[in-house]
């Protein structure tokens, strides 16, 4: 009896591991849209993993796992902002959150090809733009630190990072269309 229970428990964990791994990057994207600070986003994602693991027996396998997991991630994001209090506020209201979630679910089937195209587009970036992204992501510098390094104003760093991401978005859209995928 105990052995059977153990076997069921083990299987449940493997189901969880599979679904979590399949959805990991989408959930990470979801959390990072709302929680910009890297370590905070990682903490929220970690909390989400724990909550999902705890409640996994409540998950209805006939429903999409990502949709269910996003509901849990949303609660953890909102909890994070409640704990942060005044120093950081949630910038999107509930209606907007719901629309962003709707868009993520719509894009979900295409995200894999999106990510492949992104890898190609990153390679095509001019050196200066690539350097900017490396300072931001590899060196984990904030806009003020990047501004100091590149002798730019902080505002122009924000603007330039925004331009680079929009350039990547446009490139990915083109790539996806050219490769015959669904236009994003």
């Amino acid at each position: 009896m105990a052995e059977r229970e153990w076997s069921g428990e083990s299987e449940r964990r493997c189901d969880f591991a599979t679904l979590w791994a399949e959805s990991y990057d989408k959930l990470r994207t979801y959390v990072r849209i709302f929680v910009p600070l890297l370590h905070d986003a990682d903490d929220v994602l970690q909390d989400t993993a724990v909550a999902i693991a705890k409640d996994f027996d409540k998950y209805d396998p006939s429903r999409p796992f990502l949709e269910w997991a996003i509901g849990i991630a949303r609660n953890r994001v909102l909890q994070y902002y409640r704990k942060r209090g005044r120093d950081r506020r949630m910038i999107f209201d509930v209606d907007t959150i719901s629309k962003i979630e709707g868009s993520l679910m719509e894009l979900e089937p295409h995200i894999d090809s999106y990510e492949e195209s992104l890898e190609f587009c990153l390679q095509k970036l001019p050196d200066r733009a690539r350097r900017l992204l490396e300072l931001r992501y590899t060196c984990c510098l904030n806009a003020t630190e990047i501004a100091e390094q590149l002798k730019m104003t902080v505002q122009s760093v924000y603007t330039r990072l925004s331009q680079v991401r929009v350039t990547l978005r446009d490139c990915v859209r083109r790539q996806t269309r050219e490769s015959g995928g669904t236009a994003l």
Binding site: R32, Y114, Y137, C140
Partner: peptide, 25 residues
């Protein structure tokens, strides 16, 4: 809805670029 999609697309780029470039970190 196109704007909400833009939020998600830029979110994917933000998250995925970080994913790819932060190996060393």
């Amino acid at each position: 809805p196109a704007n909400a999609r833009t939020v998600v697309e830029l979110g994917i780029i933000h998250s995925q670029v970080d994913y790819r470039l932060s190996v060393a970190r």
